[in-house]
Amino acid sequence: MRGSNGILSSSKQAHFRQWLLKDMALLIASIQLPTEKFQVECGLGIITRFLILQRKGGDLPVPKDYSIFMAVADKIGFDSRGRRLFRSII
């Protein structure tokens, strides 16, 4: 699937997002990794996000209003050529 965030932003996937977040799960967190993560290994500059979801159902109450953690990681330990950015001092 092509697009800036694939399933997260594609208008063709709106029904999937609505089903997922309305019927199946609560979005707890969204964490975006830098594009360098897959650029070195695969030669791709793709946007990757970790979504942390909590499944609905059972005895768990579903809050009407709750906080969602959102973050963007600026660095992941190496640059787009695979060179280390950080060194351990231990």
Rank of each mutant, 00 (worst) to 15 (best):
F78C: 01
S88W: 15
C42S: 10
G6N: 10
I46G: 10
A71I: 01
S11G: 08
F16P: 00
L27W: 01
D79L: 02
T48S: 10
L33A: 14
R83N: 13
D65I: 08
P34K: 08
Q32E: 14
S67L: 11
L85T: 10
K64N: 13
S9F: 02
F16R: 10
I28E: 14
L27A: 03
V40N: 03
I31G: 02
L44W: 15
D65A: 07
A73P: 00
R87E: 14
K56Y: 01
F86Q: 05
G45A: 09
S30H: 07
I68S: 03
I68D: 00
R81T: 07
M24C: 12
G77A: 03
A73Y: 15
D74K: 14
M70R: 11
L8W: 08
L33H: 15
L85M: 14
R87K: 13
S4F: 07
P34W: 08
L8Q: 09
I47K: 15
R83E: 14
A71E: 08
L8K: 04
G58S: 01
L85D: 09
K22S: 12
L21D: 02
A25Q: 02
G6L: 07
R2A: 12
Q13E: 13
R17C: 05
F16A: 11
K22N: 14
D65S: 11
L44H: 13
G6Q: 08
S30P: 01
K37C: 06
L60W: 08
F86Y: 15
Q54M: 07
S11F: 06
S4M: 11
S9I: 05
K12V: 10
P61L: 03
V62P: 01
G82N: 05
G57N: 03
L44D: 12
I52E: 04
K37R: 09
D59G: 04
P34Q: 08
M1W: 12
L8Y: 02
M70E: 14
L33G: 01
I47W: 12
I68L: 02
M70V: 11
P61D: 12
Y66H: 09
W19Y: 14
T48D: 06
I7C: 06
D65P: 01
G57V: 00
N5Y: 13
G43R: 03
I31N: 09
L26E: 07
G82F: 09
Q18C: 07
R49Q: 09
W19M: 07
E41M: 11
A71M: 04
M70S: 13
S30L: 09
S80L: 07
L51F: 06
